[in-house]
Amino acid sequence: MELWDYHPDVYDRSKSLDLTGYHVQATDGKIGSVDEATYQVGESYVIVDTGPWIFGKKVLLPASVITKIDPQERDVYVSRTKEEIKNAPEFDEARYKEPEFRTRTGEYYGRFPKGPGTF
């Protein structure tokens, strides 16, 4: 499983789903809401607006950290704690689509052990 892909049992690419506005739940509580989501094979991610939790900052999460999507409750569950997400490379609005930024973010999330529900 690639870091920048959704798990096949979490998101079915044959169905249309817009995650914008969904609440994002870390393993230890809510961290914000989805500001933007992409669905390209090998390049998928969500940008989370953390609101007051981290003083209005945004974070970039690779699609593989998503463990569950609940369309009825409009929730996205991720396999990382609030602290792990807070310590991720700082989001850069001007550079987040550049390969260097994605590489740095991927290296950060890729270092975590793979446990149940993670890839």
Rank of each mutant, 00 (worst) to 15 (best):
Q40G: 10
G29N: 07
P89T: 09
G56A: 01
V59I: 15
D18F: 02
G21E: 12
H23K: 14
A94I: 12
G42P: 08
Y39T: 07
P62N: 08
R13A: 14
G42H: 10
R95N: 14
G32A: 02
H23L: 12
F91I: 10
T38V: 11
D70V: 03
Y39A: 10
G21T: 09
G51C: 01
F91D: 01
I66S: 05
G32P: 03
E43C: 04
I47P: 10
A26S: 13
D12G: 08
E43M: 04
D18T: 10
P62M: 06
V46L: 15
V76G: 01
A94P: 02
P8H: 12
E36L: 15
A26E: 01
I47F: 09
R95A: 13
L17S: 09
P52H: 01
D5W: 08
I47C: 09
K57I: 09
H7Q: 12
P71G: 04
A63P: 13
D49Y: 06
D18S: 11
S16F: 14
I69N: 04
P89Y: 00
V41P: 03
T67M: 04
E73G: 08
D28K: 06
G29R: 09
L60T: 06
Y6P: 11
D18R: 13
E83K: 15
P89I: 04
T67P: 00
T81V: 01
Q25E: 15
K15R: 15
Y77K: 06
F55Q: 10
Y6T: 13
Q40T: 10
T67W: 00
V65E: 03
F55N: 11
A26L: 01
S14P: 07
V65L: 03
I85P: 00
E84K: 07
V48C: 07
S44Y: 04
L19K: 02
N87G: 03
Y77N: 06
V24C: 07
R74W: 09
P89N: 06
A26I: 03
I69A: 02
T50I: 09
Y96W: 15
I66D: 00
E36G: 01
T67S: 13
D49Q: 13
R13D: 11
T50R: 01
V59C: 05
N87P: 00
D75T: 08
I85Q: 02
F91G: 04
H23G: 08
T67Q: 12
K57M: 10
W53V: 15
V48I: 15
Q25T: 02
D28M: 06
D92K: 15
D9A: 10
K15T: 14
E84T: 11
G32Y: 00
Y22P: 05
Y45G: 08
V10H: 02
D5F: 07
Y39G: 06
P52Y: 04
A26R: 00
V24K: 08
V34S: 05
E43S: 13
V41H: 12
I31C: 07
R80W: 00
T38S: 15
H7D: 09
Y6A: 07
K58R: 15
G29W: 01
L61W: 02
L17Y: 08
D5T: 14
G32T: 03
V65W: 00
Q40H: 10
K57G: 07
G56R: 07
I47R: 10
T38D: 09
N87S: 14
V59K: 03
D18N: 15
K57P: 04
P62H: 03
G29P: 11
K68G: 02
S33H: 14
